[in-house]
């Protein structure tokens, strides 16, 4: 690790010196836990007589989510330009000469944390309100005006839902180590019961959940993180993902461990100006769990074939797949007591 850190320190210092046309010295660098899709490093950089904090996201040799760094960066840039709280995007670099892999750099947002375990419960309601209102604001944006049509695959309100099903069904088929009968049943169900067309094409964050935003101790959200799965699509996709029982496993009545589901939906509707029609939202909730299984299966495949040894990949592959299958069986089995649907009521 020390040699890797030294190489990063030297490469980043040289890169920043060239970008800022002033000597930049990386004084400290440490890897941030989590960050399954990219290696994430926190740096202190001295330049022009001052020190500033930066976050560097480095493409891994493999990751939990196979995504394009440019899409992630441009989505965050668009959100930042629109006034949403995100880290300030600074550089996107594809040249391998600096540190051997592509990377992006943002400003560091200090004094916050992202862990779902440390949520300030005395500010739970305010944090929840802010969380789903921000998601509504993302849904309200016009992604084409923001230029995102140039970096994200085109889609239509009529087709975006089943295109997503096809994509994640393909991921599961390609990466599964064993057959997944519950996921297969869910995929067939999604195809046999397509939702109505999206109310609009939105910027879909793709992984909007507790744990993917930075919050301050007083319960404010200072930055929305992890835009690597951003795409154009139905805004209900993000809402359903944010409500998935996986993110409130021990408190299924509290979406994202923050708010009763109905309240979360109401805040999203108020901020987005859209309607979360129950049947359409139910379809997207089933989809969310299929997508989850796709992510977890991909991660365990990476771990299994030895491309990556990060334990978070194995944990996702084993534990999250198990839980996501429980959720899908709860949703779809004719014998189910629908514990998770009831929690969402």
């Amino acid at each position: 690790m020390a040699a890797k850190e030294e190489a990063l320190r030297a490469g980043l210092g040289a890169f920043l010196t060239e970008q800022w046309r002033d000597e930049a010295r990386v004084e400290a660098i440490s890897r941030i836990p989590g960050g399954a899709s990219r290696e994430t490093w926190r740096c202190r950089v001295a330049t022009a007589g001052a020190t500033r904090g930066l976050i560097v996201r480095v493409d891994p040799e493999t990751s939990l989510i196979d995504t394009d760094r440019a899409t992630e960066y441009r989505a965050m840039e668009a959100a930042h330009r629109s006034g949403l709280p995100t880290p300030e995007p600074l550089f996107l670099e594809h040249d391998l000469d600096w540190i051997g892999r592509p990377f992006s750099i943002t400003s560091e947002v200090t004094g916050c944390q992202a862990s779902a375990d440390g949520l300030p419960m005395e500010h739970r309601e305010a944090l929840g309100r802010r969380k789903w209102r921000l998601l509504g604001e993302i849904a309200r944006l016009d992604p084409l005006t923001l230029g995102l049509g140039e970096v994200m695959p085109a889609t239509k309100v009529e087709t975006c839902a089943l295109e997503q099903v096809d994509y994640w069904a393909g991921v599961i088929a390609q990466d599964e180590l064993h057959p997944n009968p519950v996921a297969e049943a869910a995929i067939r169900w999604l195809r046999r019961h397509p939702p109505p067309p999206a109310q609009k094409l939105s910027l879909v964050h793709g992984d909007y959940r507790t744990g993917n935003f930075l919050y301050s101790p007083d319960g404010d959200i200072k930055a929305i993180l992890d835009w690597e799965m951003a795409h154009l699509g139905d805004p209900l996709e993000d809402l359903a993902w944010s409500l998935d029982p996986l993110w409130c496993w021990r408190r299924p009545d509290l979406a994202g461990m923050l708010l009763p589901h109905a309240e979360a939906v109401r805040h999203w509707e108020d901020a987005s100006g859209l309607t979360a029609e129950p049947a359409a939202l139910a379809w997207w909730r089933v989809f969310a769990s299929v997508k989850g299984i796709g992510i977890w299966i991909s991660s365990s495949e990476d771990f299994h074939r030895g491309a990556a040894k990060a334990p978070i990949l194995a944990l996702a592959g084993w534990l999250m797949t198990d839980r996501q299958q429980q959720i899908l069986a709860d949703y779809l089995s004719p014998h189910s007591a629908h514990r998770f649907w009831r929690g969402a009521a």
Binding site: V182, D322, Q325, L332, S333, H335, S336
Partner: peptide
């Protein structure tokens, strides 16, 4: 089959 899938999970 769903009885089995429930038990499988």
């Amino acid at each position: 089959i769903w009885t089995f899938l429930d038990a499988h999970v």
